[in-house]
Design a protein around this nucleic acid. Structure first.
Lengths: 365, 365
DNA sequence: ATGAAAGCGCTAACAA
DNA sequence: TTGTTAGCGCTTTCAT
């Protein structure tokens, strides 16, 4: 490995000067020497030894990211959002996937502190770190996609009220007067938020809230199926149903079809999340996307601000989504959005502009 | 932060002795002092400063994990497998999600080298690092789930031949004599492997290989749908079809049902991957799982061996899967496996033994 | 504007 | 078995 000494020698200056240039301190260095140093560093392929820098400055440019389970639907996109911001600011992420227990969590925090991480981000973590901020030894931290517990000022979550209103209003605007609801399980705060948004949207539109067409679900496909079966057994079936997530919408659609009815002609259905179920269901599901990537970006930005000395946020940050109109709601603009347009592993999705697309039927390179 | 000095003082010994104990060197230290040191470290909440250790030993206990896109279906499970092994051996992962370009890849490698990573693991990376191993400056490395290119001795991949044979043989054992095939796109090496396995399995069973019932697909739901439409247009429709992945099986099933036929009664269908499509399709899909977690574990184990001085593997490591019998093949043991048994975000999946299950309808804690 | 040198916390070579 | 000490590569204070 080439060190700062090699560069100094090559440029004919002292290591102090090299450090001043390469560590981007704003200490004055003459333009001439600066250029000599930079070019010497480049030709030698110099790259700073972070361990040495970290030892000296007590800053590592590493952020500890602690995740409950990043095989979850949510975590990978959130972490990509985090890294998108963090990498652009010179930080790396030590990502740790921890099991549920409290104990292993504090052990991981200890170990990360040993690595001199500059801060922590907790993704989807269920347990009570928020109450134990002390163990983070003063390092800044934040949460993304908190699922339970009280609101925490340092956390970034979806704007459930706004998002759910978006899709309920879409049905209202289409002229539906009776709209059923399949809710999430009660212990998730998002269940309550979404249900409230549904009720408020109806009320705001002058429509009555009818408890008998609000069915409890549990986020799952079969949960949606069962809830829909119950709705179909009602004396008067609502012509439109909002499911609190896409999986339940998927189950509900199947229940409707199994009963010999059509979606959206007989009953319109909408979901929430914009996950794969929404894209490949038949019909494809009108929904609202979960802004996971953006949530990660914002959480990272918040942390960066704290690292630059700003105060931590005093309120939760809520991120808004957008409506995605497909077939299941029956509205005209969604008719063309077929499942057959969807390819999950499309290597061309997210491809940076200007890059040649990958032809799935051609050998690469 | 407490340092080795504080511990030495508290235990009444020199820092060298503390280091000998706490760094787990096998240098002889009397049992008595050893215990005093350990207890002092514990009461002081001491945790080694990795930057200092790393600077001194040139080992960081950090592995650089470079991923093409870890929002993919494959990456998260692989990385969990990596971490499962790595964490148990005291290593952390610096996970970096890089865009497609060659240039950003070598920059990331540079930066990771600056962090003194002890090794590299490339997950799903498409570009040609394997040809540029030089830039890793001699650090050990390995690949997981290579998608293209020539075989690389340091890579861990699914045993495509074994796995595909597993599911084809299941159909053969059920008595099917004519079995169609929907293949993956030609540029993936797994497409060729799976197709070969299908042909070999038929031949081994004394069945003819009929090119007219082998249709090209492209991994996607609509690709499977279209391929199946073509099969259904044949003068003689095979009573069973193997799709090279679950998404295409999902599309094929829908095509069959749209044609007014039943799965599995009229046509049996099997897939490959055991992804969500296999679990929620109607009927649920008989398939073979992709051993992603295990692949991660094995790759990590291989790297660990190299770090301990063993030679790198001289052949690709191929990991075997297991057959998962569900409804779509019509075999009796799969009949009870309903989509309604499936909950994607089941917080109780993978829960360590002895841990209380999470009740989705109860508030946590 | 530049250089000399101290020292971050640790490990390991050498001394006792 | 234990202690003393050099030095890993870097940043930063103090001199010049």
């Amino acid at each position: 490995m080439t060190t700062i000494r090699d560069v100094a020698e090559a440029a004919g200056v002292s290591i102090a000067t090299v450090s001043r240039v390469l560590s981007k301190s704003n200490y004055p260095v003459s333009q001439d020497t600066r250029e000599r140093i930079i070019s010497a560093a480049k030709t030698l392929g110099y790259s700073v030894n972070r361990a040495a820098r970290s030892l000296r400055t007590d800053r590592s440019y590493i952020i500890g990211v602690i995740v409950e389970n990043f095989s979850s639907y949510f975590a990978p996109a959130i972490i990509r959002g985090l890294q998108d911001v963090l990498h652009h600011n010179g930080y790396f992420c030590l990502v740790v996937d921890i099991p549920w227990e409290e104990k292993s969590q504090s052990k991981v925090v200890q170990d990360l502190l040993g690595h001199s991480v500059d801060g922590f981000i907790f993704v989807e973590t269920w347990s009570s770190v928020n109450e134990n901020a002390g163990m983070l030894s003063g390092k800044p931290y934040g949460f993304v996609h908190r699922l339970f517990h009280e609101p925490h000022p340092n956390s970034v979550i979806p704007d459930e009220l706004y998002n759910q209103t978006l899709v309920v209003n879409h049905l209202i605007n289409m002229g539906y007067k009776r709209i059923g609801y399949i809710s999430g399980p009660p212990n998730f705060f998002s269940s309550a938020d979404r249900l409230n948004a549904y009720c408020d949207a109806l009320t705001a539109a002058g429509l009555p809230v009818d408890d008998s067409i609000i069915m409890p679900g549990n986020w799952s496909v079969p949960g949606g199926y069962k809830a829909m079966v119950d709705i179909l057994a009602l004396p008067s079936i609502p012509p439109a149903v909002v499911a609190a997530n896409d999986q339940m919408a998927f189950g509900a659609i199947r229940a409707i079809q199994d009963a010999g009815l059509r979606v959206p002609e007989d009953i319109a259905v909408v979901g929430y999340d914009d996950d794969e179920f929404a894209k490949v269901a038949n019909p494809t599901i009108t929904t609202v996307n979960l802004p996971l990537f953006e949530m990660g970006q914002v959480a990272a930005t918040n942390l960066l601000k704290q690292l630059h000395g700003e105060a931590a946020p005093t309120e939760e940050t809520r991120i808004r989504s957008r409506l995605i109109v497909r077939q299941s709601c029956g509205s005209p603009e969604g008719r063309h959005v077929l499942a057959s347009d969807y390819m999950r592993h499309d290597p061309n999705a997210d491809r940076p502009a200007g890059k040649p697309p990958v032809d799935l039927n051609e050998a690469p390179e």
